[in-house]
Simulated assay, not measured.
Amino acid sequence: MPKQCEICGKMRQVGNNVSHSNIKTKRVFKPNLQKVRVQLDSGEVKCMNVCTTCIRSGKVAKPAARQIEE
C-alpha cells in the first residue's frame, strides 16, 4: 500500500537536494499522514490514513468520543 492520503490521494513527490556548490541529487517529499478515526456518510466509523491538509480543511468528519462500556 503506498503512502497516500485516502481522502485526496496526495502521494510522495520527487525533487532535488541542492548543495551550496549547486550539485543536485534526488530526494523525496512525503505527505504528513495521520491515522484518524473517520465517520463516513453512512455513519460507519473507520480508521484511515489522512493528510493533515484534509484534517485542517474539514474534509474529514471525526466521530463523537468513544463510549466507555462497564
Rank of each mutant, 00 (worst) to 15 (best):
N32D: 14
A64L: 12
P63G: 09
M48K: 12
I23Y: 09
C8Q: 11
K10A: 05
G15Q: 06
K30Q: 15
C51D: 04
P63Q: 08
Q34A: 10
A65R: 14
V18C: 14
V18F: 02
G58N: 12
Q13Y: 04
G15L: 04
S19N: 14
E69W: 06
C8Y: 02
E44A: 13
K10R: 13
K3T: 15
V36Y: 02
I55K: 15
V14A: 01
N22L: 11
M11H: 06
K35V: 09
I23R: 15
A61P: 09
P2M: 03
V45W: 06
H20N: 02
R12T: 13
T53G: 07
M48C: 08
P63I: 02
S42P: 04
Q13D: 11
V14L: 03
P63N: 09
E69D: 09
S57L: 01
G15N: 03
K26I: 03
K24C: 09
V14Y: 10
M48G: 14
F29G: 11
C47A: 10
V38I: 14
I23P: 04
C51S: 03
V18H: 08
K10I: 01
S42R: 06
M11Q: 09
T53Y: 12
K10T: 01
Q39D: 02
C47K: 11
G58C: 01
L33V: 03
P2S: 07
V60A: 03
G15M: 03
S57R: 12
